[in-house]
Write a protein that binds this DNA or RNA. Structure first.
Length: 576
DNA sequence: GCGATCAGCT
DNA sequence: CACAGCTGATCGC
């Protein structure tokens, strides 16, 4: 869970992923992705009023995030205040793919106070950073002053997490082996209620030429790449539906949607629960799929970068400062010298200056690679045991397994939080605007005393005169061509010169979902090989591509509104 | 009644 | 385990 307080030291009049407390005074808001722990305060009435009185305060996010956000009525009032993409005359802001969930981006701020990268939540594979064009200037990596990084799995237990490709292959194999047995063999993907599993749906749907049953299609209506792989028709062999009541509802031979039979024949159901931390607990060499009961499985699955991936990313960027956005497991709020009210991270020490950047090579060879090769089949003849028994059993390792575990988990040079991160960061109680710098000279920035006064008129009236320090405006440079496809994850540099647009199309990150045959309008990099394709996070890319025609949408909306089941088939989105 | 917060539970 | 999110209890306004 993000504990980022919302503001960056370098550009404190901007708030990111936090919208409460002092962030009410921000001049501009950024939302990296649509998860609740990054949306604190976003539906607050104070913020709503501020917007109504402001001409320039806006929320900046990717198109996909906008779509997902507005799908929730509680956030619908943001519609007229969202801008995406954008640029600023003072600060160039670039949206980079974050690989965390649909629409997730990192924000790269480039301005007078240096280049700052805010990762939001992210998962990039080792070696991905060199492929992100906008982190480079020519052939050189841009100078990065600070990185505010997703440190969720900055913990030796997550030293390595199997790649998306490996995890996906494991799940595919399990699903395939099951559903091929008969039409009555069905799979329930027990996914948490969050965006981020969509690429699982699309890949499974593609591979098995089917659709995945979900509770609602509404949020995906403008994302045909996802929409074509999900359905509200329960007659499918792969479900990811949920029931608000407890999971016992889906115990026995029953899906959360209530399905128990097909054509009068009882279903044979297995459940697959995507998990990261559960696997982090057992760091012995394991398969990416573990059977936990007669009909239940855990599948390794992460949408946060592992320790190694974080290190690889930061080692490549070599930032001056690294600020963690998340207090990792094993650390608690008690580590903080200040109360939780006033700070969100341990305050200290510029002793990690300069460059707390890890020496990747030196550390790596002290670890075993815990990544699993997925060659072992997860057997149907594994012991039929109760869930808890097996789970308990998994924890008691054999002797030799324990050895591996020790080597995996207790490297001679264990990662040290203090050595890696610059931990001082901007907090509510600490207004760096005047506590440390004059270089940020926003004439309209509230003074500290005013900032603590919730009744300050700035909140509602500040924008009658344009803020010259931080003016943002809609970029006209994004043509409908490349923005058609890549909104969620193309590097949206929004201040692009027209001639740069060609290069954008050649960027490997602008590639799209693998194996889709209906992708002629998608931008594919020429240099990609097949093996590269599936190793990327196949973020659903294209809110704007193949925009559904109004008539099609109208039909869909009518059906959805009437509660009718809507079945979208590939290649004919928008018609049942 | 609403929002904020927290315990509890996935 | 704290991945992300829900429900419900409690408290203050």
């Amino acid at each position: 869970m993000s504990s980022f307080a919302g503001r960056m030291r370098e550009y404190p009049t901007i708030s990111l992923d936090r919208f409460d407390r002092e962030n009410l005074y921000a001049r501009a808001y950024f939302l990296s992705h649509c998860h609740k722990d990054h949306m604190k305060g976003l539906k607050g009435p104070l913020l709503k009023r501020k917007l109504q009185f402001s001409r320039t305060v806006r929320l900046y996010c990717s198109f996909v995030t906008k779509e997902l956000l507005l799908n929730n009525p509680k956030y619908a009032f943001w519609e007229e205040y969202i801008v995406s993409p954008f640029f600023s005359s003072q600060v160039v802001v670039t949206l980079l793919p974050a690989g965390h969930c649909p629409g997730s981006v990192m924000f790269l701020f480039e301005g007078s106070r240096g280049n700052v990268l805010y990762t939001g939540d992210f998962r990039l594979a080792t070696g991905d950073a060199p492929r992100i064009e906008y982190l480079h200037s020519g052939s050189r990596v841009k100078d990065i002053q600070s990185v505010y990084v997703d440190s969720t799995f900055y913990d030796p237990r997550y030293y390595k997490i199997p790649t998306r490709e490996v995890c996906l292959n494991g799940i595919s194999e399990l699903v395939g082996n099951w559903i091929r047995q008969s039409p009555y063999h069905v799979v329930w993907l027990n996914c948490k209620a969050a965006y981020g599993y969509e690429y699982l749906f699309t890949n499974l749907g593609e591979q098995f030429n089917t659709q995945i049953h979900v509770n609602s299609l509404a949020m995906f209506i403008k994302m045909p790449e996802i929409l074509s792989y999900v359905t509200t028709d329960r007659r499918t062999q792969i479900h990811a539906c949920r029931h608000p009541k407890n999971e016992e509802y889906s115990q026995g031979n029953r899906m959360p949607c209530g399905c128990t039979t097909a054509d009068g024949i009882p279903l044979r159901i297995i459940s697959i629960k995507p998990s990261t931390m559960w696997f982090g607990e057992r760091s012995r060499k394991t398969n990416v799929i573990i059977k936990t009961g007669a009909s239940s499985y855990r599948a390794c699955f992460s949408f946060h970068s592992s320790y190694s991936e974080i290190k690889d990313f930061l080692s490549y960027l070599q930032p001056v400062n690294v600020y963690p956005n998340v207090i990792p497991i094993g650390r608690t709020l008690n580590d903080k010298p200040h109360s939780p009210e006033t700070t969100s991270l341990p305050v200290s020490v510029d002793e990690s200056f300069p460059l707390p950047v890890p020496d990747t090579v030196a550390v790596v060879h002290n670890y075993l690679d815990c990544t699993e090769s997925n060659d072992e089949e997860e057997d149907g003849e594994e012991q039929k045991e109760q869930e808890e028994v097996i789970e308990g059993g998994e924890m008691r390792e054999t002797q030799q397994e324990k050895k591996v575990e020790d080597e995996c988990k207790e490297p001679s040079s264990a990662p040290k939080w203090e050595e890696f991160f610059t931990v001082e960061t901007l907090t509510d109680s600490q207004n760096s605007l005047n506590s440390q710098s004059q270089s940020c000279r926003s004439a309209t920035t509230p003074s500290p005393s005013r900032m603590t006064d919730s009744q300050t008129p700035e909140l509602f009236s500040e924008e009658e005169t344009p803020d010259e320090n931080f003016s943002l405006s809609l970029s006209a440079s994004l043509s409908n061509h490349s923005s058609q496809n890549m909104d969620s994850y193309l590097p949206d540099t929004l201040i692009l010169q027209p001639e740069q647009r060609g290069r954008e199309q050649g960027d490997a990150w602008t590639s799209t979902m693998s194996g889709r045959e209906d992708s002629e309008d998608l931008i594919l990099p020429v240099e990609r090989s097949e093996s590269q394709v599936s190793s990327d996070f196949d973020i659903p890319c294209t809110p704007e591509s193949k925009v559904p025609q109004p008539e099609e949408l109208l039909q869909l909306y009518r059906k959805l509104a009437s509660g009718e089941e809507v079945v979208i088939r590939k290649g004919s989105q928008g018609s049942a």
